[in-house]
Design a protein around this nucleic acid. Structure first.
Length: 454
RNA sequence: GUGAUUGUAGCUCAGUAGGUUAGAGCAUCGGAUUGUGGUUCCGAGGGUCGGGGGUUCGAAUCCCCUCAUUCACCCCA
């Protein structure tokens, strides 16, 4: 037999118990706040019909979808000349009709339309599940990762945006991660594009402006020119690229700059409202209107969010925004929603790098019974059952192995107490109990041991 | 998709001006110690040197191809 090297697909990971404890800490914390803000849990399947997923994430996103081969003889419906053509895109349509979900928002939109009769609007849901992207993995980027989404749908109120900012602030404050919460508005971006007469280049412009920190103003201008943005437009964009000051000051200037654009002004108005509402609240993290924030996902139409950890070099840990008509394509038009997605895996990386995981209390094994043989086993089983009934995690070592081996096992599992019941203890109706931390050993009755844990 | 990086034991890595049977630490198993762990000492098992081809008397080491890895860009959580 050929030995096979154990391996898992690129960009995926296993989690050992100690890592799971930390991951659960993240999920539990996020879940706690989701509930606190009135969101209810739902789940959707790992796979969706490709027709549901395709075309929602932009050209790049479509490429990154994991597609599932049809079951059975998937080539039976393909004509030989179609195979000859060697056109992957065309052939894919014939042999694959399902794919792994790319995010939780689009499946959620599908879910809302499909279950509209069972839901009360405005509807608030949270969803913590893995998503898959056929990206090239690198630091903080995985092919399978968990998103923790909170969305509200069926309400245009900007109170929802304010709520999501507060939620985000609460969550990262709890994690003790200093973050910068960046806000922008697609309407403002549209207004800017309209202003300079390059409506179709809006994505190119924002992507270029997004690189301001990295390549400088001159680099940004060069990139825009390379993408075919006219010289005049670039000239007009300069005051926007160099926009500075407080959020309030920026909005005031934008109001002036965008006075000829209806959409633009609407966006400025929305952001002004949001910032003004937030002003009356206690927010612990940095809050910034960031015009360079673009977000590639196609479906955003209003406010967009992004959260970056201040002390760790990693992609954004959270992102989201408002989508005015994501449900329209599934047959339920004019329903606005807004949502946000926390990247559990990146939050994990940040917490780990900053060494911020709390010392978790031991919820694993608390008591191990040493196994001395078949007579002793029989004697111990009811004692263990009694301990378990009292909620004490206990077990007996499954074989009557050497004492040293059993103690070593207890030690590596960090079991706080080891119970020894041999001939002598059975006669005295007592248990020898060793405290593995101090090394102390005492004789006591079962009740005394139980009391120790209550 | 583009550009780099690295591939040697289960894990982390030494070892290259080409030269006998390829090493260490950790982990595992056994013993010192047949009812006492985390310290110590002794010992054992475990390797197609990522794969294929080439150069050479001789390749982990040099050359070519290939696969994988990690990182950056793009994009994103």
């Amino acid at each position: 037999m050929v030995k096979q090297k154990p391996a898992i697909p690129k960009g995926t990971r296993d989690f050992i118990p100690s890592e799971m404890a930390n991951r659960n800490y993240i999920f539990d914390t996020i879940k706690k706040y989701f509930k606190l803000y009135g969101f209810n849990a739902i789940e959707t399947p790992a796979m969706e019909n490709l027709s549901t997923l395709m075309g929602k994430y932009g050209e790049e996103g479509d490429k990154l979808l994991f597609k599932i081969l049809n079951s059975g003889d998937f080539l039976s419906k393909v004509r030989p000349e179609q195979l000859q053509e060697l056109n992957s895109a065309k052939l894919t349509n014939k042999i694959s009709e399902k794919g792994l979900r790319y995010d939780l928002t689009v499946p959620f939109a599908r879910f809302v339309v499909q279950h509209r009769n069972d839901l009360t609007f405005p509807f608030k849901r949270y969803q913590i599940q893995p998503v898959w992207r056929a990206d090239r993995p690198q630091k903080g980027r995985y092919r399978e990762f968990y998103q923790c989404d909170a969305d509200m749908i069926g309400s245009e109120s900007l109170l929802n945006e304010v709520d999501l900012v507060q939620l985000t602030d609460d969550i990262f404050t709890d994690f003790n991660i200093a973050v910068s919460i960046k806000l922008n508005n697609r309407k403002i971006l549209s207004g800017i594009a309209e202003l300079v007469g390059e409506l179709d280049k809006i994505i190119d412009i924002t992507v270029a402006i997004d690189k301001l920190d990295k390549i400088g103003a001159e680099g940004v201008n060069k990139e825009m020119a390379a993408k075919g943005v006219s010289e005049k437009a670039i000239e007009q964009l300069q005051p926007i690229i160099h926009l500075q000051g407080t959020n309030h000051e920026k909005l005031e200037k934008l109001k002036e700059l965008l006075k000829t654009s209806e959409v633009g002004l609407k966006g400025v108005e929305e952001m002004t409202t949001i910032f003004s509402l937030l002003k009356g609240l206690e927010i612990h993290n940095e809050l910034e209107l960031d015009l360079t924030l673009a977000r590639g996902l196609n479906y955003y139409t209003g406010t967009i969010f992004e959260v970056k950890a201040k002390d760790v070099q990693i992609g954004s840990v959270t992102g989201g925004g408002r989508y005015d008509d994501l449900t329209g394509i599934f047959g339920m038009p004019d329903v606005s929603g807004v949502g946000i997605s926390y990247g559990a895996d990146r939050i994990y990386d940040v917490l780990k790098e900053l060494d911020l995981f709390p010392k978790l209390k031991q919820d694993a094994l608390q008591v191990l019974f040493v196994n001395f043989g078949s007579v002793e086993e029989r004697y111990c089983l009811p004692l263990i059952a009694a301990l378990r009934k009292k909620g004490v995690n206990s077990e007996i070592y499954p074989e009557s192995a050497k004492m040293k081996k059993q103690m070593k096992y207890a030690n590596s599992l960090k079991v706080p107490f080891v119970v020894m019941v041999g001939e002598e203890e059975m006669q005295n109706q007592k248990l020898s109990i060793k405290n593995m931390e101090t090394g102390e050993q005492k004789e006591m009755k079962l009740e005394e041991l139980i009391n120790h844990f209550s």
